[in-house]
Simulated scan of single mutants.
Amino acid sequence: MDFAAKIYVAGHRGLAGGAIVRSLQRKSFNNLLLRTHAEVDLTSQGAVDAFFAAEKPDYVFLAAAKVGGIHANNAYPAEFIRDNLAIQTNVIHSAWKHGAKKLLFLGSSCIYPKLAPQPMPESCLLTGPLEPTNEWYAVAKIAGIKMCQAYRRQYGFDAISAMPTNLYGPGDNFHLENSHVMPALIRKFHEAKERGDSEVVMWGTGTPRREFLHVDDLGDALVFLMENYSDEEFVNVGVGDDVTIRELAELIRDVVGFEGAITQDLSKPDGTPRKLMDVSRLTSLGWKARIGLRDGVRETYRWFIENQERFRR
């Protein structure tokens, strides 16, 4: 990418989008187009088309999405499939229509079958049933991958896709019910410590295994792919290692300094038993994650402490 190129980061206020912006700025890409939802409603075809017609970005990072954990996916299935389909359809089509040189679509590891082989290679997409608790989001993301492939095949549009594993880091959502497992646990342990509680309740059995990628590693990987990759096949982005939810909870308890017990709410669902990415394709291109889990959790906890007042509203 030329340093003078116009780069549009859709979803720049989100966890992933914010990391993309930080990575671009570290690499001295400063001609960034950043718009809030109030400025451009990405679910509106007319608003998106008008934005692209006026600004004509050269490169597009499509990180905007409606996201959430197990509870949110179960509670709002219509919104998860409707809003995500609308956002990606509008942005991909307008980017092609108005002459963008390249687009990167950001998906999710939940696109894979519930019982996919571990670690999950890109080739196992659409080889089995999805995890029921997030299938609405997964179906939308699969459609986004296929749309990028279709526009590449039919129109020669340089659209690529990247599928990140579970993300965490500065800017995460720490809502106790609608967030992902790591930020929810960080907040639970912190507030339990403040109150002097004797225990923290963890959802499910604690046995599912999850892979966690620091969001700044993701940002670096996506800029790397934008500059170095052009192919129809999508690319997994992860660390290639995982931990149990119980192990994660114990690590967070240690980082926060909570001295009580960890108990389980077995009425809550576990979700997919394991979701470990096969990252050999990305590794072969020359990129590897650099932020270790403990260091990443420490940094995320510091960010939460500095910003916690916004989460109490």
Rank of each mutant, 00 (worst) to 15 (best):
M1H: 09
R13P: 10
L15C: 00
I20G: 02
R26N: 14
N31M: 00
N31L: 05
R35G: 11
A47V: 11
F51M: 09
Y59I: 06
V60A: 11
V60F: 10
A65C: 14
Y76M: 13
E79Y: 09
F80E: 15
I87S: 01
I92Y: 02
W96H: 15
K97R: 04
K102E: 14
P113S: 02
A116Y: 08
A116H: 11
L125K: 05
L126Y: 12
P129T: 12
K141R: 00
K141Y: 06
A143W: 06
G144P: 10
K146I: 04
K146W: 04
M147D: 00
Y151F: 15
R152T: 03
Y155I: 04
G169W: 03
E177R: 15
E177F: 14
H180S: 13
P183T: 10
R187C: 01
M202L: 15
T207E: 15
E211T: 08
V215P: 03
D217S: 11
N228Q: 05
F234P: 07
D241P: 04
D241V: 13
D242K: 04
V243C: 12
T244K: 08
L251Q: 09
V256I: 04
T272W: 03
K275Q: 09
K275C: 12
R281C: 00
T283P: 03
K288Q: 14
L293A: 09
G296I: 00
Y301T: 14
Y301M: 10
F311M: 06
